[in-house]
C-alpha cells in the first residue's frame, strides 16, 4: 500500500506542477511548475526503484537524468527570459506570442 500511496503523492506533485505550468502567465512561474512536475517524476522513480527493482540501477539513473533535466530547464529558461526581456521588456508568455521580434 505504501508503494501506491507514494505514487499518488508523486502524481499529486506532478499535477500541481501541471496546473501551474498551464495557468501561469509569467515565464518564471511556468518554470516553477515544470520544476514541480520533475520533482514528482523523481519521487516516482525512486519509489519504483525501491519497491519494484532495487537490484537494477536504471531506476537511479532515471533520477539522475531528471535532476539534470531540472538544471538544464532552469538555465535555458532564464537565459531565454533574459534575452526576451532585454529585447522587448516582456516576461509574460501572452506578450511573447509573436516571436518574430
Amino acid at each position: 500500500m505504501t508503494f501506491e500511496l507514494i505514487l499518488v503523492l508523486a502524481a499529486g506533485l506532478f499535477c500541481i506542477g501541471l496546473f501551474g505550468a498551464l495557468s501561469q502567465q509569467s515565464i518564471v512561474m511556468i518554470m516553477m511548475g515544470i520544476e514541480l512536475m520533475i520533482g514528482g517524476i523523481i519521487v516516482a522513480a525512486a519509489c519504483f526503484w525501491h519497491f519494484l527493482a532495487p537490484d537494477a540501477p536504471s531506476g537511479q539513473v532515471i533520477v539522475v537524468a531528471a535532476v539534470v533535466a531540472m538544471a538544464v530547464e532552469m538555465a535555458m529558461g532564464f537565459a531565454v527570459t533574459t534575452a526576451i526581456y532585454r529585447a522587448r521588456q516582456v516576461d509574460m508568455t501572452d506578450m511573447a506570442e509573436c516571436l518574430k521580434g
Binding site: A11, L18, F19, L22, S23, Q24, Q25, M29
Partner: peptide, 20 residues
C-alpha cells in the same frame, strides 16, 4: 497572474484522476 484558470484546473484534475 493566471490565465485560463478553469481549463488548467480541469486538465490537471483529469490527469491526476487518470494517474490515480
Amino acid at each position: 497572474m493566471l490565465h485560463n484558470k478553469r481549463g488548467s484546473l480541469v486538465i490537471s484534475a483529469v490527469a491526476f484522476a487518470a494517474l490515480v
